[in-house]
Amino acid sequence: MSNHSCIEIANEWGIVSARQAGRELSKEIGFGSVDQARITTAISELARNIYLYTEIGKIDLEEISDNHKNGKVRGIKVVASDKGPGIENLRDVMVDGFTTSGGLGAGLPGVKRLMDEFDIESIPGEGTTITTIKWLR
């Protein structure tokens, strides 16, 4: 895919740039205003986690497509990766209510619900990669 961008997240400016790039790409793909806002919020939360909990990380945005039974479907893939401390217990951070005490903002379960697909890989001491997709319905 040609439509691909990568934003480094080292400070709050990075968060705003990632939001901006995400909103533009989702608009281009054809998402409506509600979904644009949701995708942007998801990107924003992922970027904010990188900014708050790790030294450096990046957000990769990409237009993707897949063959569904009703034909070709377009979507946006967001990959947030960092070389931070990693997450010890993934089950804990994926439980609703956990974030309210941990201060992760909307939290990963919130991000998961804003998008259609969600995957997380984390190695303590090495870093975390979160891949999430929203399809254009």
């Binding site: 919020t41 919130g110 619900r113």
Partner: peptide, 24 residues
């Protein structure tokens, strides 16, 4: 209204979390 929509996203997330917690 587009601006308002952006602000309401947070409420939407809280609303969905509330539903899930209620089911739990």
């Amino acid at each position: 209204f587009e601006f308002l929509l952006e602000v309401m996203i947070g409420y939407g997330m809280a609303y969905r979390e509330h539903q899930i917690l209620r089911n739990r």
